[in-house]
C-alpha cells in the first residue's frame, strides 16, 4: 500500500521535489513550502494523512520501487515514474477508494478531534443505555471536558439521545458501501466492546493497515462534510462538528452562485438563471476560490495554464495581473489568472 501511495505522490511531484517533500506532505508539516507544494502539485487531499510515518520508511519504500524499476532516480532523492511505474499506478488507482473524500489539507487538524468527541460520546451513551460503568477510551483532556459539557447541556433522556444519534449514524453509514460502514462501526467503542484498531480491522478484511487508516480518514472527512452541509439532517452530529470547521464566509450572492455550481451548472447557465452578467458570476467564483478550501478551480483553468501562471507569478514575484498576463501570453484570460492567484492566496492566508 505504501509503495503505491508513494508512487502516487512521486507521480504528481513529477521529479520536481525530493523524498523529503513527500515526507513533509504525508506527515502534515505546516510549513509554507509544504502547503504550497500540496496545492501546486495537487496533493492537498493527502496532506497530513500519515502523521506517524517516518522518513526512513519512505526511503526504504523508495528503494523497493527502484528495485522494481517502477521509478528512476533523476536527481539526489528525487524520482520519476517509469513506464512500468505509471502502468502500476493506473492499475492501482481504482482500488484506492479513499481518494473519493479524503481531504487532508482541509480536515487534517480537526478530524481526530471530531472522532475523539464522537467516539467518546458513543461510548458514553452506549454504556448509559446499558447502565454500565466504563473507563473512557480517550485520555485527551480537552475531549473529556467537551463531552462532559455536551452531556450536561442535554435535556433529552439518554435513551432518546441514543436513538437520535443512532438514526443519524445509520443514515450516514447507509449511504456508504458495506466495507466502509463496517470499518466505521468496528472502530467504535461501546458497551462490552472496545473498538478495533486499524490493524485489527485490516486483519479482518485481509487488507493493508495503511489502507484501513486512509479509508477511515476518508470516512471521517465524508461524514464531516455531509454533517456540515446538511446540518438540518444531522442535528446531533452537527454539535460535534460545528466549532471545528470554520464556517465559510461568502457574500450572499456568491453563496447562491456556489450552490448552483454544486448542482453542476456552468457559468453561462448561472448567469442566465440569475439574470446576472457573466463578469459578476466570475467575480463570485474568484471569491469562492479565495474562501472555500475544498473548492477546485480545475473546471475553470487547465492544469497546464495553472502551472504556467504560478510559475510566472513566482518568477516575477508579482501579483499584478497585467504583468503576469504579458508573461504567460494573451490566450490566458484575466479570470484564469485571478482564479489561480485567489486559490494560492487562500492558501497563504491559512
Amino acid at each position: 500500500m505504501l509503495p503505491y501511495l508513494l508512487l502516487y505522490c512521486l507521480h504528481r511531484f513529477n521529479g520536481e521535489r525530493s523524498l523529503a517533500a513527500v515526507y513533509h506532505l504525508l506527515s502534515g508539516k505546516k510549513s509554507a513550502q509544504t502547503l504550497q507544494d500540496s496545492k501546486w502539485f495537487q496533493l492537498e487531499h493527502v496532506f497530513g494523512v500519515c502523521k506517524t510515518i517516518s522518513l526512513l520508511e519512505l526511503e526504504q519504500t523508495a528503494q523497493e520501487l527502484l528495485m522494481q524499476k517502477w521509478i528512476v532516480s533523476i536527481d539526489e532523492r528525487s524520482y520519476m515514474l517509469t513506464e512500468a511505474g505509471r502502468r502500476e499506478l493506473e492499475q492501482w488507482l481504482p482500488s484506492a477508494r479513499f481518494f473519493a473524500h479524503l481531504n487532508g489539507s482541509f480536515y487534517h487538524a480537526v478530524d481526530t478531534l471530531f472522532w475523539y468527541r464522537l467516539s467518546l460520546a458513543v461510548q458514553t451513551l452506549s454504556n448509559l443505555v446499558h447502565r454500565y460503568k466504563f473507563a473512557p477510551i480517550h485520555r485527551h483532556e480537552a475531549t473529556l471536558a467537551w463531552v462532559k459539557k455536551y452531556f450536561l447541556s442535554q435535556t433529552k433522556p439518554a435513551h432518546d439521545l441514543a436513538q437520535a444519534l443512532y438514526q443519524e449514524l445509520h443514515a450516514l453509514c447507509s449511504s456508504l458501501p458495506e466495507e466502509e460502514a463496517t470499518i466505521f462501526t468496528l472502530r467504535l467503542t461501546s458497551f462490552e466492546r472496545i473498538g478495533w484498531t486499524n490493524e485489527q480491522i485490516a486483519l479482518f478484511f485481509r487488507k493493508d493497515p495503511l489502507y484501513i487508516q486512509l479509508m477511515f480518514q476518508h470516512l471521517l472527512h465524508y461524514m464531516m462534510k455531509r454533517i456540515e452541509r446538511e446540518s438540518h439532517l444531522f442535528p446531533v452530529l452537527h454539535e460535534f462538528v460545528k466549532d471545528l470547521v470554520k464556517p465559510v464566509s461568502l457574500t450572499l450572492s456568491a453563496q447562491k452562485t456556489y450552490e448552483w455550481l454544486q448542482k453542476g451548472k456552468t457559468i453561462a447557465e448561472i448567469a442566465r438563471i440569475r439574470k446576472l452578467k457573466r463578469n459578476t458570476i466570475e467575480d463570485h467564483i474568484v471569491e469562492i476560490a479565495a474562501n472555500v478550501r475544498e473548492f477546485s478551480i480545475e473546471p475553470f483553468v487547465a492544469e497546464e495554464t495553472r502551472r504556467m501562471i504560478m510559475k510566472e507569478a513566482t518568477r516575477l514575484g508579482t501579483r499584478q495581473l497585467k504583468k503576469i498576463r504579458d508573461a504567460v501570453g494573451h490566450h490566458v484570460s484575466y479570470f484564469e489568472i485571478r482564479l489561480v492567484l485567489a486559490k494560492a492566496g487562500e492558501l497563504r492566508a491559512s
Binding site: 458513543v122 451513551l125 452506549s126 443505555v129 446499558h130 435513551h159 441514543a162 436513538q163 444519534l165 443512532y166 449514524l169 445509520h170 453509514c173 458495506e178 460502514a181 463496517t182 466505521f184 462501526t185 468496528l186 467504535l188 461501546s190 458497551f191
Partner: peptide, 14 residues
C-alpha cells in the same frame, strides 16, 4: 460480528 447494522443497533440498544 453480525454486520454493521446489527452492531449499530447493539451499541445504541435499539
Amino acid at each position: 460480528f453480525c454486520g454493521w447494522e446489527e452492531e449499530l443497533k447493539r451499541i445504541f440498544r435499539n
